[in-house]
């Protein structure tokens, strides 16, 4: 098979013309090294976020208040595990191996979504995570479903189809509390007070602090900027939260009839960067839980490999 060739202005122009024409780039097609590198970075961070994202909610499975809620939460956490698998698959089509990516996570060299370093303190938090955290994730993932790289796009289409139920079940739970007793309303408000800002932050730094964005948009990896996706999230969720009688913890939040958008106050980026750097409330605990799970699964992996080897030897 002919070498598809090194980078040149002509190759780059042909590649960008394919993307401009709406074509998907598939494994084996020529791509600039920077495109491949950015995709591996984004997809692996996304995969890690799905896997670490199982931890906050997984802790609540034994304490779910009803069998129905337990079934729902089990299915949701199982979905997050599956979504991590779809995404590691997409990353592997770019020539990296899942083992390398997981090693980077366990050794603290990889990033994952900052929002999972906050603690869910009450059952109302589980609902608020579904409504806001999954709501924010879906806005991002609907955008990424348009991605120019085929395997990432397909993983996103599938994940979006599955995650709409995560968003709905959380919203249903919060609405039940918001319309419930005074104590339940207070729990919903408390959860909103703690999850609103982390949900806004999880959509990433301001466009002005996101140096990769212009190139990612040019190459169709992202089709919107962080601030555009954040605006979509606020426009959908702020009025619905207010509608059910909850108070959004942002004194500057207001609707501007002139532009039709809800405008939020300043985000505490110092907090965001501190959590990204590893100084969030639960960064150390999250990584420790992943390392423990990896070690506790070691004998299973070894047993499966030994069984397969013996079967092959006796076949």
């Amino acid at each position: 098979m002919a070498d598809l060739g090194a980078e040149s202005p002509e190759r780059l122009a042909a590649f960008e013309a394919r993307i401009a024409a709406g074509e998907k780039i598939e494994p084996g097609d020529w791509m600039p090294e920077a495109y491949r590198h950015q995709l591996v970075r984004m997809i692996s961070q996304h995969a890690h976020s799905e896997v670490v994202g199982m931890l906050p909610e997984g802790a609540w499975i034994p304490r779910a208040p009803s069998l129905r809620r337990k079934l729902i939460l089990l299915a949701k956490v199982q979905d997050e595990a599956g979504h991590g698998q779809y995404l590691y698959h997409a990353a592997e089509t770019l020539g990296v191996h899942r083992d390398e990516l997981i090693a980077a996570l366990l050794e603290g060299r990889a990033k994952y979504s900052s929002v999972f370093n906050y603690p869910p303190l009450t059952w109302a938090d589980v609902g608020m995570i579904g409504w806001l955290v999954d709501g924010a994730a879906i806005k991002n993932q609907v955008m990424l479903a348009q991605c120019s790289y085929g395997p990432y796009s397909r993983a996103m289409v599938r994940i979006c189809a599955e995650e709409t139920f995560h968003h709905k079940q959380g919203k249903e739970m919060v609405l039940t509390y918001a319309r419930g007793t005074a104590h339940q309303r207070a729990m919903a408000q408390d959860a909103l007070d703690r999850w609103w800002w982390p949900s806004l932050m999880m959509l990433g730094p301001h466009d002005s602090d996101s140096p990769n964005t212009p190139q990612l948009v040019r190459w169709g990896v992202k089709t919107k900027t962080n601030d555009q996706v954040r605006q979509e999230f606020v426009d959908e969720h702020a009025p619905e939260l207010l509608e059910v009688g909850l108070e959004v913890p942002d004194p500057e939040l207001r609707f501007d009839p002139a532009d039709g958008h809800w405008h939020h106050g300043p985000i505490d980026w110092d907090e965001f960067w501190a959590v990204v750097r590893g100084d969030g409330p639960l960064n150390a605990e999250r990584l420790e839980a992943r390392r423990r799970a990896f070690e506790e699964g070691r004998w299973v992996r070894e047993a499966i490999a030994a069984h397969a080897a013996r079967r092959e030897a006796t076949a």
Binding site: R68, L71, I72, A75, D79, E162, T164, F165, H167, K168, Q169, K171, E172, L175, P239, E240, E243, V244
Partner: peptide, 15 residues
């Protein structure tokens, strides 16, 4: 497992 479908939840929009 119909609880995995969004149609199982009646919360489209409070408004």
């Amino acid at each position: 497992k119909t609880y995995k479908q969004q149609s199982a939840y009646g919360t489209t929009a409070p408004t």
